[in-house]
């Protein structure tokens, strides 16, 4: 099968996905929860659509930013207080 024919066949099987539909399933995609044919449609659409490629990158950047938020440090006074309570508790 030629690659062009293969692509046409894939395109026929996959059908179309709109940009709006892509944004709706983007988390399912990132979570690995898209059913196979939706996954194919998603990729076919992304291959053709600059806007959705950017949107996916924005979403990944959003997640990365959240992941890099620094932890909330525990104030020493709270640690001391809790340890004191623990010592009392074990008596």
């Amino acid at each position: 099968m030629t690659s062009k024919l293969k692509q046409a066949l894939m395109s026929y099987m996959a059908g179309n996905m709109t940009c709006k539909a892509v944004t709706n399933v983007i988390t399912d995609y990132l979570e690995g929860a898209l059913p196979f044919w939706d996954w194919v449609r998603f990729h076919m659409h992304l291959g053709m659509c600059f806007g959705c490629r950017n949107y996916l990158r924005q979403m990944k950047q959003t997640i990365k930013t959240l992941e890099k938020l620094p932890s909330e440090p525990m104030p020493p006074a709270i640690r001391d207080e809790l340890l004191k309570r623990f010592k009392d508790w074990k008596r």
């Binding site: 709109t18 940009c19 709006k20 539909a21 659509c49 600059f50 806007g51 959705c52 950017n54 949107y55 990158r57 924005q58």
Partner: peptide, 9 residues
């Protein structure tokens, strides 16, 4: 249902 304004990079 396609982008009215394309998302930026």
């Amino acid at each position: 249902d396609h982008w009215a304004v394309l998302p930026q990079s």
